[in-house]
Design a protein around this nucleic acid. Sequence first.
DNA 1: TCCAGGAATTTGATCGTTCAAGACCTTGGA
DNA 2: TCCAAGGTCTTGAACGATCAAATTCCTGGA
Lengths: 328, 328
Amino acid sequence: MEKVTIATVARRAGVSRQTVSNVLNTPDVVREETRERVREAIAELGYRVNQAARQMRTGRSRLIAVRIEPANDGINGSVLDRFLHGLTDAAGLAGYRVMLYTAAGDDDEIATYEELLSAYDLDAFVLTSTHHGDPRTSWLAGRDIPFVTFGRPWGAPDTHSWVDVDNASGTTAATERLLATGHRRIGFLGWPAGSGVGDARREGWARALGAAHLLGSSAGVEDGVDTGAAAARGLLAAEPDTTALVCASDSLALGALEAAREMGRDCAVIGFDDTAVARAIGLTSVSQPLAEAAGRCMDLLRELLDGRAPSAPTHVLLPPSLVLRQTA
Amino acid sequence: MEKVTIATVARRAGVSRQTVSNVLNTPDVVREETRERVREAIAELGYRVNQAARQMRTGRSRLIAVRIEPANDGINGSVLDRFLHGLTDAAGLAGYRVMLYTAAGDDDEIATYEELLSAYDLDAFVLTSTHHGDPRTSWLAGRDIPFVTFGRPWGAPDTHSWVDVDNASGTTAATERLLATGHRRIGFLGWPAGSGVGDARREGWARALGAAHLLGSSAGVEDGVDTGAAAARGLLAAEPDTTALVCASDSLALGALEAAREMGRDCAVIGFDDTAVARAIGLTSVSQPLAEAAGRCMDLLRELLDGRAPSAPTHVLLPPSLVLRQTA
DNA sequence: TCCAGGAATTTGATCGTTCAAGACCTTGGA
DNA sequence: TCCAAGGTCTTGAACGATCAAATTCCTGGA
């Protein structure tokens, strides 16, 4: 099986290399009849463009890079993985491929950008886990490298396109559900103030309560089942009339469930992220539309890469959905 | 910031392109002093080889491909994700990058191989989820394309290198643990016969029981919490003296736990895969050394890619470990 | 002093594609 | 009849690296 190049196709179709290239890249400049002939030759020979050669000439690789977390073990770790699955699908459909990398910290990640850009000519990056004071976005923006973030730029100037899930509306929906089923004293179990995502989730709960002219207490602890259980015990003990808890994660929710069971309290619980754990134990949870988010990220990237970038960056905010199970 | 090529470096160091190339690829043919001078120039300029150009000449891309499952939702889905994390790490250390792809079925996957090979000149593939009658391995082997499987070639002729976890020894360890803690009637909750992995897990349990001259019953059902619960109910009802269950997955184990609780039976349960769910609910589970497996896969691949392939394929069988928690 | 022979370095060609520019046809209006 | 203007197709050069062969530089023995 000889290697089939553009020259092979050209010979077979009786045209020049460039004409074949034109059929591939700018079909409209080639006469109908010729175009067909070339297409047949391509099909017969099973020709495929060699990306490396194309890339050398055009500087574009049709590759996008995403970071994969080193080896997170938590209940919530799977969220990014699910996003990754969606992104790989969406990229494939758009003719791109996803390349993975790991990095220990933001600076290391930036070093990796340099490496990937110069070695592999990466076309674009998708960033996840954006946070306050994130140096990555400004580094990329400063070099005009196409990128999209999954997660809005917390605090940073809003100069790039992003996709995010409306965290607040998720907890609002959760709280409203609890209100609708008769709960009147609804607490919130979240993370310490300061993380954008966590604050938003708390905010959504507070907003729903406010709209119903109700009050509720909240706690902020590091994520985890045990920390969640401890915090929930505290909350439930301090407020005997609390009958429901909205939680910022499934881990916390699981802890809350444990605490309530221990204390013999009947307490509805709603988690966040709809992880495997939630599905397994029947925990009602707020579900992020990760596949859709990935698809939208890819859409935005294509805009950037095709040069038809809108003058202003685009922001996509997706509504999460509430998955009802036994716990609420 | 001008683009730095090998020619830039050569000029700066006062040598020819080829000498720079030699410093990079075959340092021993370059005189010590020259080598140093070139290395300095490389460092000063921040030069990095352009993979596309190198690849065009050498035909090697330093890229390896792995399939990522479309978007599996189950409790057990995360196993492959964790393997993927490890592989990305190991590949990075060895100077390779991981490229992802998805495929719907084996034939589609083979089509993707063709695409990836001709378009991106992939160096190697890592296959997961090997199964009986897997057409992928023979396709790759027939074309002399380097690959390793994570999972042994069930049934197929054993002509390639692979890494696998010793499933049987995992359930053996689990069963022995139960025996050591006094259980005498230990059941097994697994999948229908025919899947290599499932059969091996059952086999490990049976072996341990046999060594202790004991008997036990087993059930085989599709993976899932509900199916597991149903099967466990059946087993426990039929055998009032069963006090422990070894399960082929955490999903089944979770179901077993549910069933036992419902029935008011005190029953030890051990799952398999040490998923997030197991950690979350305190389920004792057999843990696969996924990071190590990924590392070994990478080692085998490097052997193949560096041409120092052993004449016979290498097989690596890793022992899993038992993670003790509350349920056993 | 000269030369053989190995070590160190350089030169030209090449990988497969696309860009830029030029060549070749048609067609139609002057 | 001739030429301008498009439309269509072809030709060389270039991208940045490595291979293969050629060249220069050394060293030491005759």
